[in-house]
Computed example of a mutant assay.
Amino acid sequence: MAKGIESLDALAAVIPLLKSAIPTEISIALCDMEQFTAYWPSAHIDLNIKPGQRLQEGEPLMQAIRNDQALRAEVPAEYYGVAFTGTAAPVKDLSGRVIGGIAVQVRRHSELIEIADRIAGSLSSANEKIAHLAEGSGALAEGSGELLDLSKQAEKNAYEADGVVQLIKEVADQTHLLGINAAIEAAHAGERGAGFGIVASEIRKLSGQTVTSNNSIRDTLGTFKKLTAQMSGSIDRIADTGQNQAKSTEQLSDMIEEIREMAARLNEFAKQL
């Protein structure tokens, strides 16, 4: 310390006032050249120093007195149950002679640092999982889009098949008409047209079967068109949901990253306390 105090007792008289005026938790120990003369613990920092307790060799306060040099050390929580920053400095009288020493312990906000670290770690892990979820949502939206295109193409093909069905119907109608005409001609020919009449009957039977099959195909195509239309609507909704989910997870990821940065700043601030 700088020159200026009259005695250790004079310094001891003002320490309680200084301790109460400092807006952070500290404990203060005062000693002469051989032993502690006073100790003011705090609510959480109590080194159990007793007046009259002798200084130990290698103790920071002893080193500060002997070397006339201030020391500083970071003491972890495992030693006294709470982490703190400790300083030790020589005390000099008005003539500049070292007459003792003072040690100050300032509590470090290790709990705050630990909480900030945990928050940052949890947010980083959550951000990774959300990033994977966003990738999956994007893939879902892309796959749904491709499936939607295929569904619409199938629906389009089903409508194009209507032309084929119509063509089959026209052929069946013409075949039926041909069978009727053949039957009429066979009747005109009498016995000589008996064989031709059998052929005409088979043509008409084939025409009837073609009409029946064509109607069945038409009904099947109608059902298929309805199903493909419904499937297209469902896939379209799935695609929209996937896209919305991808956007939401991206926004959530940005928010978590922002909170993680705030936790990192909180960590730095806590280390400075």
Rank of each mutant, 00 (worst) to 15 (best):
P51K: 07
V199C: 01
S122A: 12
Q245S: 14
L177V: 04
N215I: 09
H109C: 08
L55M: 10
L178W: 07
S234M: 13
S27H: 03
S122C: 08
I235T: 11
K19E: 06
R265Y: 09
S124E: 14
L94T: 11
A246P: 00
I180F: 01
L133H: 07
L206C: 08
I99Y: 11
E191Q: 14
T37M: 12
N181W: 02
G233V: 08
D9P: 00
I45P: 05
K92Q: 07
V104G: 06
E268M: 12
I26A: 01
S137A: 15
L47Y: 05
H188A: 13
M262Y: 09
I256S: 02
D219C: 01
E258T: 15
L178F: 12
A186N: 05
R265P: 01
A126E: 11
A64D: 06
L147H: 00
S248G: 10
G195I: 12
S95N: 09
A239P: 00
T210S: 12
V199Y: 02
A246N: 09
E78F: 13
S232I: 01
L221C: 06
S248Q: 13
I45A: 04
H44N: 14
G190E: 04
P90C: 06
S137K: 04
K156A: 14
E114M: 05
D117S: 07
D219P: 00
A229T: 15
I217S: 03
N127Y: 02
E78V: 14
D46A: 07
G136L: 12
E257G: 13
L150A: 15
T37I: 15
R97Q: 11
Q56E: 13
A73W: 02
I115Y: 02
A83N: 08
Q153R: 15
V82T: 12
M1Y: 04
A187F: 02
V164Q: 05
A263M: 08
A131D: 10
V104P: 04
